[in-house]
């Protein structure tokens, strides 16, 4: 199963995987031995191999979220050896490769843990709470029509860059998973600041931040204590600055918006 690289020796690993039948059932960590894993495999390919093994043994395969496997969709998750998306910084689980592990390693794999992210099955969690925050105000209301000319609305380069950096959030929920408080502030701040910085987003600026923060609290996420573990674990490098901007936006909106 090893790749073409002569240096890549196949590895034998011990996996401790969270198994949970459904959202109501209590889960446990099950131990599985897995053999001949190529260091060139991605983490999710290793999970595929595990599932093939389990199927052959007549065991229910492990359910885990994944989609694009290119690090852009935000569907994969997994808390690997105590870290959201595993030990490597700035990558999603699907972009984590087995070469980051060594032969004989024990790898503990758990789902995202947060009240607003209930476990559906095994490693799959329901992250629709983030969708509802987004739906509470993470949009702009404009009439569709002809395509506007490029650069019709002047936006300074540095602002466009910052807004784009915030817009790279893939809504995977690693920030919530890594946060000691289970706070969704980094996610919400990326969505709020992205639109607050751009002219098109300024129309609904105040109402947006009020509604999105209200929804964030309603979903039961914790409060941010500026620890910074979210930004450290974020696979796309959303900056903590966005949280300061969200605070600024929220304070400003609370005291100056027309919403009584």
């Amino acid at each position: 199963m090893a790749g073409n690289n002569p240096n890549s020796k196949p590895m034998n690993l011990t996996l401790k995987v969270w198994r949970q039948k459904n959202s109501q059932a209590a889960g446990t960590l099950e131990t599985y031995q897995i053999k001949d894993i190529s260091p060139e495999m991605s983490f999710l390919e290793m999970m595929d191999v595990l599932n093939e093994d389990l199927l052959l043994k007549g065991i229910d395969p492990v359910a885990f979220d994944h989609d694009c496997r290119e690090g852009i969709c935000g569907m994969c998750s997994l808390y690997i050896n105590g870290r959201a998306h595993g030990p490597e910084r700035g990558t999603t689980t699907c972009q984590l490769h087995m070469r980051k592990f060594s032969d004989g390693d024990t790898i503990t794999i758990e789902p995202w843990r947060a009240g607003p992210f209930p476990v559906l099955k095994d490693l799959c969690t329901d992250r629709s709470a983030l969708d509802r925050i987004q739906q509470a105000g993470g949009y702009i209301s404009v009439n569709t029509g002809g395509v506007p000319d490029a650069n019709e609305i002047p936006i300074p380069k540095n602002i466009a860059d910052k807004a784009f950096d915030a817009a790279t959030c893939i809504q995977c929920g690693a920030c919530v998973a890594a946060c000691k408080n289970g706070s969704a502030m980094l996610f919400t701040s990326a969505k709020v600041s992205q639109l607050a910085m751009l002219p098109q987003g300024k129309v609904e600026r105040k109402t947006r931040v009020e509604n999105m923060v209200a929804q964030m609290d309603k979903e039961g996420f914790g409060a941010c204590t500026n620890i910074g573990s979210c930004a450290a674990e974020c696979p796309v490098g959303i900056s903590l600055e966005n949280i300061a901007m969200l605070n600024r936006e929220y304070i400003n909106a609370s005291f100056t918006s027309e919403n009584v």
């Binding site: 050896n81 105590g82 870290r83 503990t108 009240g115 476990v119 408080n181 039961g220 996420f221 450290a232």
Partner: peptide, 18 residues
Amino acid sequence: NNSVRKVPYAYNRPQDNS
């Protein structure tokens, strides 16, 4: 904040990120 994570992580390494 302490009530948000009802099931704690079996293996957690917060020292790596904060």
